[in-house]
Design a binder for these strands. Structure first.
Length: 326
DNA sequence: TGCCTAATAT
DNA sequence: AATATTAGGC
């Protein structure tokens, strides 16, 4: 309450310095990058890699994969210290022999491309899907919305069935990986354990996120969730999405669109109270789960990470459980 | 192999 | 502290 909505804030894409003033001081802002630019950069990256790998055709790719895997990441030359860019820094990377500091970052791409090279190079000429699988993903931020979805699913699956892959599928969140879920699940279990031990205590100062979403009853009992009875499989059902005007339906993007970036990260607003009377404003200002400085799309989510999103394919669970209103 | 979980790394 | 990545077992 009282916080500005995203639309009240200045978009990052907008120059804060008038052009005249900027040029007077020899400041030349980076050119505005559209999703198309990013996509183009990705394509360049991939085709560059492909040609480089082709040039190395005398190589035994198997051994290349092994040698590039680990170890060599010691002498990373950090000249630019973090900071923006992200997309094309991989483009020019990779020194001649393919070893060295970049090896690690490129590992996945190496093997992907090497594989396809070995397979006579076919299907792989769709850079977007390749990128979806191979490009380094931004660090996922578990927003309250995302966590809510997670808890809902876990609650309905029950402890026994709540394993990363299943959870991931039922959450039906674009771009969310099994690893993402596994990691979060691990922490969530730790939280539950801790909470059981200290039964009767007030809400811990930490665990802000976890405390913000009540633990489903099914997780407190020894058994499993709703469907854990006679039938092995839990019965999905429960909720349907309310077809609200806001479009609170369909796969939730893990990495929200970020036309607007909040510098002060309101995303982690302190809702340390246990009730779920979250404030609209803070919830709304929280839509993006991106942790870095750069957005993927500008106005809308342009990518569908269908490469590994089972949720949108028909042979997997695709119901999202519960809505995300809190 | 693929997946899961605990441990460890970033 | 929050996530990601690895390691080892099934």
């Amino acid at each position: 309450m009282g916080l500005p909505t995203p639309y009240d804030l200045t978009p990052l894409s907008q120059s804060l310095i008038p052009p005249e003033l900027a040029s007077a001081f020899n400041i030349f802002p980076e050119p505005h990058r559209t999703p198309l630019d990013v996509n183009r950069a990705s394509q360049n990256t991939l085709s560059n890699l492909r040609s480089q790998l082709n040039a190395l055709s005398s190589f035994n790719f198997k051994s290349l994969n092994e040698t590039t895997g680990q170890k060599h990441d010691t002498m990373v030359v950090e000249l630019e210290e973090e900071e923006e860019e992200e997309e094309e820094d991989r483009t020019e990377a990779m020194d001649g022999d393919g070893s060295g500091s970049e090896a690690r970052k490129l590992r996945r791409i190496d093997s992907e491309e090497a594989d396809s090279a070995l397979k006579t190079e076919n299907s792989m000429d769709d850079p977007s899907s390749a990128a979806a699988r191979t490009l380094k993903r931004p660090r996922l931020v578990w927003t309250p919305q995302l966590h809510k979805r997670f808890v809902d699913v876990v609650g309905h699956l029950g402890i026994k069935n709540a394993v990363p892959k299943t959870i991931m599928q039922w959450m039906n969140v674009e771009g969310l990986t099994r690893e993402n879920v596994a990691s979060h699940l691990q922490k969530y279990r730790l939280y539950l354990k801790r909470k059981q031990g200290l039964s009767g205590e007030g809400p811990s100062a930490s665990d802000q996120l976890f405390a913000s979403t009540p633990v489903p009853q099914s997780l407190h009992e020894s058994g499993g969730g709703c469907g854990s009875g006679i039938f092995g499989m839990p019965i999905p059902v429960p909720y349907h999405y309310p077809a609200t005007a806001a479009g609170g339906m369909m796969p939730l993007p893990a990495y929200g669109h970020v036309g607007i970036q909040m510098v002060n990260d309101y995303a982690h607003n302190n809702n340390n109270n246990n009730n779920h009377h979250h404030q609209q404003a803070s919830m709304n200002s929280n839509q993006n789960g991106y942790h870095g400085n750069v957005a993927y799309g500008h106005m809308f989510q342009q990518r569908n990470w269908n490469g590994n999103n089972y949720g949108s394919s028909s042979h997997h669970p695709q119901h999202a459980v519960s809505n995300d209103n809190m």
